[in-house]
Write a protein that binds this DNA or RNA. Structure first.
Lengths: 209, 209
DNA sequence: CGGTCCCTTGATTGATCATTCAACCAAGCA
DNA sequence: TGCTTGGTTGAATGATCAATCAAGGGACCG
């Protein structure tokens, strides 16, 4: 029944609050209250609030696989469906929070206009890690997608779709924009699959394009 | 040689600063310095800082057509190319500012996690106005796009692409993510045009799908 | 028992923030 | 000339913020 160490409680409290109210709008007092700690403890563990943010971003990055992907992909074997299952997980978070809670990384990324190098680098790494996982799905899809498709680029485009959709849905307080975005991405991928399929039968017939 | 009235100088100063550093990170002092005014003048014109934000969002919305679309569309007659010319304008802003200045509406939208009703409504209206213009282009494209295409949805998806691309490019400080996103959107639209074209020749031959 | 190490406590500090206000100015009018 | 109205001045106010620090607690070791 031992509580988590104070340092970890602070990280998780900050993680939650930064995602919910943003970095700048979350005061150190808010974090202390949420974590049940005192300011001295926070500043014993972290030199500044920004160093706590760094720890949060590192924690979030490490949590992408076990906390986000694993549950989203449980029971989903199809590589392409996994991409949309991931997007569905974000939809679930939006739906569960009345379109308030989207992607904390995106929020923080747009909130910090002069981010110090370490913070920006970690935001980059978070985005990259996400894109890496999607790219792996798209690569695993093999010849279901056109051979000459830029799969990394499509993975980036997938993140773009998620973040842009979340932004609009949070603003409008409706899932409409998110759903419209995802359904168009899905349409695009379907057309890519059709093109790849057509390409394959062309090749089987020995025809050239 | 008369200067702009103080009230307008304040709005334009705030517009610039909110876009550059965000709403929360811009202090009233910053705005006063930039506008060359005193706090009393600001609070004579606006009850609170947030009311100034409201005025800024209204001003921005009215400026979308004359300040953003008009220059982006000068000399571009093709309806579909206009969509990408608009996206190109954002690319130009990113390029000119080292990927620092993207879309102020998007920044503010993600920055304000508990936006009061008037602010959120104005953010919504800004997004809607942007989407309206793109939708009009897509509608004007007529049968170059599939007849059953959800054009409003594609316009929303275009905004999604822009905002998501800007977010990533600002974070990575590279145009790569923005360019990748746009080029995939372009690929998607190209495939839609091909499908529409195929559908038209089917119809001309009297075949059915 | 005393000593050391790690961590916690919580009042305090000083900076910064949005906002206020009494005084002031200039133009228009009588 | 004096009154009114709309706008300006900038120091002052009080709230809030991140960060500090002297004091203490308790576990472990001799």
């Amino acid at each position: 029944m031992d509580e988590l160490p104070t340092r970890d409680r602070l990280i998780f409290a900050a993680l939650r609050l930064f995602g919910e109210k943003g970095y700048l709008s979350t005061s150190v007092q808010d974090i202390l209250r949420e974590a049940g700690a005192n300011s001295g403890s926070l500043y014993h563990a972290f030199p500044t609030k920004q160093d706590l943010l760094v720890a949060v971003l590192e924690t979030y990055r490490q949590g992408i696989e076990p906390m986000l992907l694993a549950p989203a992909w449980a029971g989903v074997e199809d590589h392409i469906e996994r991409v949309f299952a991931l997007l569905g997980a974000y939809r679930g978070m939006l739906a569960a929070t009345d379109c308030l809670y989207g992607c904390p990384i995106g929020s923080i990324a747009l909130e910090l206009h002069e981010p110090d190098p370490p913070v920006r680098e970690l935001l980059s790494k978070n985005f990259d890690g996400w894109v890496d996982h999607v790219e792996r799905c798209l690569v695993a899809a093999g010849d279901r997608l056109p051979a000459d498709l830029d799969r990394r680029g499509l993975a980036v485009f997938t993140l773009t779709t998620m973040e842009g959709g979340v932004m609009q849905s949070r603003t409008h307080r409706t899932l409409d924009a998110f759903d419209a975005s995802i359904s168009h991405l899905r349409d695009y991928v379907r057309r890519l699959e059709q093109a790849a399929s057509a390409g394959r039968s062309d090749a089987a017939q020995g025809t050239t394009g």
